[in-house]
Design a protein around this nucleic acid. Structure first.
Length: 580
RNA sequence: GCGCCCGUAGCUCAGUAGGAUAGAGCGACCGCCUCCUAAGCGGUAGGUCGGAGGUUCGAAUCCUCUCGGGCGUGCCA
């Protein structure tokens, strides 16, 4: 349990203890009460923690909240607790103030835990897969993939530091319709290069990007043009394979440049070796499929209908949704992407035994969430609880105040690799993690290219650099930068107390980010941590502290700040430079 | 039509298991380097929390309705 959780739990105990003691003295009536809610007051004047316990239970106690709060405060016992003061305030708040010893213990644990400060040892760790990016290997990755990559990688890190076993996976769609389209597109460019633009019609739904042209001409450079005379089937296979062998390593290296390394690359083509068929058969055996017009359908509407009724929706509400069934196997005999996706998730949850599968999808896929969960329910895999889909709103790309449309088809998308050529990885990662997944992210190209202080990542990194710089300056003067047994009780300036309070939050921030599947809150935390430090730095002198003991205590505090910022930034995949 | 997401300061956004005077950054304005990095610090101005009802001692937060923007609603992936 971390320092914050300890304090919150103890605050509740103190209040309940005060209530019980008051009851025994006959000051308060005994009643069934709701447990005290502990919160952090906005105004620090109202203490470190506060509870509306007396107001919550005013009805049950039939007493004015203020009287209840007074009785509780007068009878609460603070000896041997983390708190030094409990007071009441109108209209009935109970406010608690942490003792200085608590702050001292925070610093001790940061020093003790070092790089591990912020991590939580989970009692029942879960085996979690985070699948993200999974961009089609038919073209370059775009800004949406950039956001998804940062989100997935950071979330995986957060879950891991919250005590879970985490696997990062990229699902490679190397089979199916889009690969045919890909092959036909390369073929067309190749034929056009050999026979001229007019000689070969480019498929209407093909990929128009320049990268396809490059693949075609590179193929000719490497293998000559004899492929033009090969049977079509053979030619398309060869070109698809060539394209994938070029694109997949490129995606891998682009992501790596971005600080993202996967534990596993899972190929869709694997599933086509019997697993999809098996999964579909399983659904059929369980009575969830039927044939119509030559295709095999999943009874999605029936499955979802049952789920919705269980959730308490009325028949009328469900009627409005116009639920539809989905095709698993097309009348041409090919399985749909949906069928492959069901097989893939069965593979994750059943064959590979992950407790939870988390997917990061573009919000444009939201229509598929319910039906995939439903299909897993139909397989008895509890998709409702074991599959978590994070829908990420698309990135709105701005240039000169105008929206830039992203389109793979027209080839005008800004590629991930172009982005990294222009802005540092640290800035990109920090920026893409700055908002929760479900909000639209506006990305101004002009602003992103700028490497000045407008970028908030520098603000945080600068705090770290300042810490390291002081320590370096001190050590050059022969002053020990890791004092033995520093006397933390000397750190009593409000700026010092505020700073330590910020430092205490990291483990809880990581836990909350993991719970909410929202790593963006760590950006906000890193920033408020930096603010507390910059404020402290401008108010409290370190070298010229009043006494050597105070100086040493502050040196230790600076060490702790550097450690906490480093741990926070490393969770985000951002570097913590020693100097800037 | 139906579904999902969003609407809070000039701009970009925090804040939703209901709590005390609604916050931050940028932009604007005013201050601070003879002093450990000014990529910094301190301060001022700026709000009918899209709108209307309701629940409550108390609503940005919960419920209903409504207006505006984005996305989706394929035998595409």
């Amino acid at each position: 349990m971390n320092a914050i959780q300890q304090a919150v739990n103890q605050a509740a105990e103190i209040i309940l203890g005060g209530y019980r003691a008051a009851c025994e003295k006959g000051l308060l009536p005994k009643a069934e009460l709701s447990a005290p809610v502990i919160e952090v007051p906005k105004d620090p004047k109202n203490g470190d923690y506060a509870s509306s316990f007396a107001m919550q239970n005013a009805k049950a106690l039939r007493l004015s909240p203020l009287k209840t709060a007074q009785a509780i405060c007068e009878n609460a016992i603070l000896e041997n607790t983390l708190f030094s003061e409990v007071t009441c305030a109108a209209p009935g708040f109970i406010n608690l103030r942490l003792s200085h010893g608590w702050y001292e213990s925070v610093l001790s644990s940061i020093i003790k835990d070092g790089c591990d400060y912020g991590k939580t040892a989970c009692e029942n760790p879960k085996k979690i897969m985070v699948e993200f990016v999974s961009a089609n290997p038919t073209g370059p990755m775009h800004m949406g993939n950039a956001r998804g990559g940062v989100l997935g990688d950071t979330l995986a890190e957060v879950l891991s530091r919250a005590g879970n076993h985490v696997c990062r996976e990229f699902y490679v769609n190397d089979a199916g319709n889009q690969i045919d389209k890909f092959a036909h597109s390369i073929e067309a460019r190749l034929m056009q290069e050999i026979y001229g633009e007019e000689a070969f019609v480019f498929p209407e739904d093909g990929y128009h990007g320049d990268d396809i042209k490059a693949l075609a001409s590179d193929y000719i450079k490497e293998h000559g043009d004899s492929i033009k005379d090969a049977p079509e089937h053979e030619r398309l296979n060869a070109l698809a394979e060539y394209g994938l062998n070029r694109n997949i390593p490129k995606m891998k290296s682009d992501l790596q440049r971005y600080g993202i390394v996967y534990d596993n690359w899972f190929f869709e083509s694997q599933l086509h070796k019997g697993s999809i068929e098996e999964t579909v058969k399983l659904l059929t055996d369980r009575g969830f499929t039927y044939e119509n017009e030559g295709a095999l359908w999943l009874k999605t509407s029936e499955i979802l209908h049952a789920n919705l009724l269980r959730e308490g929706k009325t028949e009328e509400q469900i009627e409005k949704l116009e639920l539809k069934d989905d095709v698993l196997r097309r009348s041409n005999g090919f399985y749909t992407y949906f069928a492959a996706d069901i097989a893939y998730h069965r593979n994750k949850l059943s064959e590979r035994g992950f407790d939870i599968a988390i997917n990061i999808w573009g919000a444009d896929h939201h229509g598929h969430v319910a039906r995939l969960k439903g299909a897993l329910d139909a397989l008895g895999l509890d998709g409702e609880h074991r599959l978590e889909i994070i829908l990420m709103q698309l990135v709105r790309l701005m240039r000169d105040g105008e929206v830039v449309r992203m389109s793979k088809r027209t080839g005008k998308a800004i590629a991930l690799s172009d982005l990294l050529d222009e802005i540092p990885v640290d800035a990109a990662r920090y920026f893409f993690n700055s908002r929760a997944a479900d909000t639209h992210l506006e990305f101004d190209l002009g602003l992103a290219v700028r490497q000045d202080s407008d970028n908030p990542v520098y603000y945080v990194q600068y705090a770290h650099a300042r810490c390291k710089s002081i320590l370096k300056a001190l050590s050059q003067e022969g002053i020990a930068t890791t004092p033995v047994n520093p006397n933390f009780s000397l750190l009593t300036d409000p700026a010092e107390i505020d700073l330590i309070r910020e430092l205490s939050k990291l483990p809880e921030e990581i836990r909350l980010a993991a719970d909410a599947l929202d790593p963006s809150r760590l950006n906000r935390y890193s920033s408020s941590c930096a603010t507390a430090f910059h404020h402290f730095y401008s108010i409290c002198r370190i070298k010229e502290a009043a006494t050597e003991d105070l100086r040493d205590a502050r040196i230790s505090l600076v060490n702790c700040v550097a450690q906490v910022i480093e741990n926070t930034l490393s969770t985000l995949g951002v570097s913590a430079p020693d100097h800037m």
